[in-house]
Computed example of a mutant assay.
Amino acid sequence: MIAVDIDVLQSIMPRFSGANHSKQARIVEAISGKMQETLAKYEIDTPLRVAHFLAQIAHESAGFRTTEEFASGAAYEGRSDLGNSQPGDGRRYKGRGLLQLTGRANYRALGQKIGLDLEGNPELAAEPVTSLVIACEYWKSRNINRHCDRDDLIRVTKAVNGGLNGLDDRRRYLGKAKTALARVEALGHEANAKPNSRPVLRRGLKGSQVAALQEMLREKGYMVAIDGDFGPATETIVRQFQKNKKLDADGIVGSKTWKALEG
C-alpha cells in the first residue's frame, strides 16, 4: 500500500487564498491522517485505485475545498426517489461528503452501515473524516475498483457522476495523482534499496537519475531526448527496450531493466 499523506494531497490540490484556503486546509489536514487506513479498509490499495479515487474526490470536492454541496438543496424537495418525504428534506439532506450523499433514504442507509445517525444528524456527513468514509462506501457499493484496475477514467467517472461532467478536470487530477504516487513509490524503493543500487523509475518522475537512464538508452541506440523527464516518449522507448530484451514491457525501470542496460 502506497503511503497517502498530506504531502501527496498537497501536490494534487489547487492553490486557494483567503477563506477558501482555510476551508481546504481544514479538510486536507483532517483526512490526511485517516486516509491510509481508510483506503486500505476498502481495498483502494494499488497505485491505480488510489490515483483514480484521489482524482474523483478532488474534483467532486472542488479541489478539497468543500464537503457540502454549494447549492441549497431546495431542488431535492419532494423527491420521493431520494426518500425526501417531509417538508424541508431537500435542504436538510442536501449533498454532503467527498462523493456527495443526497436524500433522506440514502442518509439513513449509509448511516446504518457506518454506525452513525446521519438521518437524525445530517450535518455529520460533512465532517471531513466521515465524508471520506462516505466516499469509500460509495466507491465500494459501485465496485469502482474494477474500472481503476483497467485505468478506465471514462467508466470510473460514469460510476461516480452518472455521466461525464468535468471529465477534463478529473483527467487533470488523475495525471497529478499518478505523478505524486509514482514519486512516493520511487522514494520508497530508493529508501529500501542497497546503497549502490539503482532506483525504480517510471513515468512522471524527473531528475538526474532519469537523465542517466536516457543517456544509457541513447548509448544503446534508442533515440530518446535527454531531458531528465520520464514522460510518455521515454516510457515508450523503455517498453521497446524491454520488449527487445524479452523483459516484461511495463515501462517501469526496475532491477532487471537496469541490469540489461548495464550489460
Rank of each mutant, 00 (worst) to 15 (best):
A177Q: 01
G88H: 10
R91C: 05
V253T: 03
V50I: 15
K94D: 00
K158Q: 14
L9Y: 08
G120R: 10
A135R: 07
Y173C: 04
P14L: 10
S131G: 12
T66G: 03
R142P: 09
N196E: 14
R171D: 09
K259I: 01
E262V: 09
G18W: 10
I252D: 00
L187A: 12
L181S: 02
A159K: 02
R146L: 02
G204I: 03
N145K: 11
L217H: 06
E137I: 04
A191D: 04
I27H: 05
H52G: 12
I154G: 00
S85C: 00
E219D: 13
M35W: 03
D169T: 12
E127F: 08
P195D: 11
F53V: 03
N106W: 01
G33C: 04
R15T: 14
A225R: 15
I6M: 07
Q240T: 14
G207D: 08
H59E: 01
M1A: 10
R65N: 13
D89E: 09
N244T: 04
G254K: 01
V224Y: 08
L82S: 09
T46E: 09
S80D: 09
D229V: 14
I252F: 04
S32G: 05
S208K: 14
T236L: 03
L217M: 04
Q56K: 08
